[in-house]
């Protein structure tokens, strides 16, 4: 295993087009090329594997560091274990096919991995960005409708994570050697939130270091994150419940200050303003925005109003 090489892992399904190519261009644009990219092609995208290979070859420098693996399973966590066992890096990070790593993404992980001797989980900052998927002339690409929004806490607090995940997966890079030493694997039975489960089990034995640098954007197309949109609400809730039960069996070592800084008193006290938005509003906005698309100025006005409401979204305790 080579020291300080990052293994970036991406699960690619049929729904990942054309966003996967934005991710390709962002990885090709990194100012530190010390990484490999493992692309796990799920069954729904198997028929596109030739196209993927051909397009990746067109960024020839990146292509030398890409491995395309055809996987037969659709388990979200299970296929990540294939990459974990196969990766050559000392740090592993999962990027979804619609994520946007910034120019400093790999450089920051490599820099801090060296500082912490590849013994810690690194948590950099991911900002959320409102986008809209445009059909027609935009070729189904995502167009941004907000600046980067700070939607998750800057500092990692283990106690807060007991209640709910507060770290998107592209914020986290895991030390491969340590992960294997403690036999942590992704849970192949979970239908959602497998990243939260993995983080908590890894954090049982490995410290998490917060780094206040923005390294990626998590795009919210048409008002929702892809992973939430593609998972049935019940499956999501059920998975969260399973993870909470698993967490209750962990022995977690808190850092000094975790208890004081923790704002949350229990699952029932945790809410977001966004979740508090009435259901009728959320349904209405999903219907109106695509229609307003045809009237650019109206669309901008509606978008700005919606962004103002969403930008007030903060974690609150009731």
């Amino acid at each position: 295993m080579t020291e300080n090489i990052v293994s970036v892992v991406t699960r690619l399904g049929a729904e990942g087009f054309p966003d996967i190519y934005d991710l390709q261009y962002c990885l090709n644009g990194q100012n530190d090329s010390n990484f490999e990219w493992i692309v796990l092609v799920r069954p729904s995208a198997h028929e596109k594997i030739d196209e993927i290979r051909q397009e990746f070859q067109r960024t020839s420098d990146l292509y030398r560091r890409v491995r395309i693996l055809k996987v037969d399973s659709d388990s979200r966590g299970g296929i990540l274990n294939i990459a974990l066992n196969d990766c050559e890096g000392s740090m592993i990070v999962v990027l979804d096919d619609d994520d946007i790593p910034l120019t400093n993404f790999i450089e920051t992980i490599n820099h801090f991995a060296k500082i912490y001797s590849c013994n810690s989980i690194l948590r950099t900052l991911t900002f959320s960005q409102e986008t809209h998927r445009l059909q027609g002339m935009a070729g189904n690409h995502q167009i941004s409708y907000s600046k980067g929004i700070e939607a998750w806490p800057r500092e990692f607090n283990l106690l807060s994570h007991i209640v709910q995940n507060q770290t998107p997966c592209m914020s986290l890079s895991f030390p491969v050697k340590k992960i294997k030493e403690y036999n942590v694997e992704w849970d192949s039975t979970l239908l959602a939130v497998e990243d939260w489960d993995f983080l908590m089990r890894a954090a049982e034995n490995i410290s998490v270091e917060s780094i206040s640098k923005v390294t990626s954007l998590y795009r919210r197309a048409n008002g929702s994150y892809r992973s939430q949109k593609n998972t049935a609400r019940n499956d999501w809730k059920e998975s969260e419940q399973i993870v909470r039960e698993k967490i209750s069996n962990l022995t977690l070592k808190l850092k000094v200050g975790d208890l004081i800084e923790n704002q949350y008193l229990g699952p029932n006290s945790l809410k977001t303003n966004e979740n508090n938005l009435p259901q009728y509003y959320r349904s209405l906005i999903r219907v109106i925005l695509p229609i307003a698309n045809k009237f650019p100025r109206l669309y901008v006005i509606l978008r700005k109003c919606h962004n103002k409401i969403v930008s007030r979204m903060k974690w609150i305790v009731s």
Partner: peptide, 11 residues
């Protein structure tokens, strides 16, 4: 929008 220019930026 279908044409892309990667412009190195940090946020």
């Amino acid at each position: 929008p279908r044409a892309v220019f990667y412009h190195s930026k940090d946020i």
